[in-house]
Computed example of a mutant assay.
Amino acid sequence: MGLGKEIRNKIAKRAAEEIKPGMIVNLGIGIPTLVADFVGDIPVMFHAENGILGTGPSPKAGEENPLLCNAGGFPITTVSGASYFDSAMAFALIRRGFLDMTILGALEVSEKGDLANWIVPGKRVPGMGGAIELAQKAKKVIILMNHTDKFEKPKIVKQCSLPLTAKTCVDMIITDMAVINVKKDGLELCEVFNPFTIEDVICNTGATLTISEHLNLISRFEGDI
Results as ranks from 00 to 15, higher is better:
143 I>E: 15
74 F>E: 14
41 D>H: 01
213 E>H: 09
148 T>H: 12
154 P>S: 07
22 G>F: 02
85 F>R: 06
220 R>K: 03
107 L>G: 00
74 F>W: 07
54 G>E: 14
139 K>F: 00
5 K>R: 07
146 N>E: 15
21 P>S: 11
71 A>C: 01
150 K>A: 07
176 D>V: 03
160 C>A: 12
193 F>L: 07
150 K>G: 00
203 C>E: 11
66 P>L: 12
147 H>R: 07
203 C>L: 11
21 P>N: 11
199 E>A: 02
80 S>N: 11
2 G>W: 04
133 E>T: 06
37 D>E: 14
208 T>V: 12
119 I>E: 10
82 A>S: 14
99 L>T: 01
198 I>G: 00
45 M>N: 08
165 T>E: 04
108 E>K: 10
98 F>C: 01
17 E>L: 12
62 G>L: 15
84 Y>M: 02
2 G>P: 10
200 D>R: 00
131 A>M: 15
159 Q>S: 11
52 I>K: 01
124 R>G: 00
205 T>G: 02
59 P>R: 02
222 E>W: 12
91 F>C: 00
141 V>H: 08
86 D>A: 04
92 A>G: 04
155 K>F: 03
220 R>I: 03
59 P>F: 00
124 R>T: 09
213 E>G: 13
127 G>R: 06
110 S>M: 15
108 E>P: 08
16 A>T: 01
177 M>P: 03
121 P>C: 01
27 L>F: 01
217 L>A: 09
123 K>Q: 13
80 S>L: 01
87 S>P: 00
78 T>P: 08
148 T>V: 14
153 K>A: 06
24 I>M: 07
194 N>G: 09
156 I>S: 02
170 V>R: 06
195 P>Q: 05
107 L>I: 01
119 I>H: 03
104 L>C: 03
153 K>L: 11
104 L>T: 10
117 N>D: 14
196 F>V: 11
147 H>V: 00
68 L>T: 01
41 D>N: 14
55 T>C: 08
142 I>C: 07
182 V>G: 04
109 V>P: 06
182 V>P: 04
74 F>D: 08
43 P>M: 11
73 G>T: 10
175 T>C: 06
118 W>T: 01
48 A>D: 15
70 N>A: 02
219 S>H: 12
197 T>G: 09
212 S>V: 13
12 A>E: 14
126 P>L: 07
201 V>R: 07
22 G>T: 09
85 F>P: 05
151 F>N: 13
131 A>T: 15
80 S>R: 08
106 A>L: 06
122 G>M: 05
151 F>T: 08
48 A>Y: 00
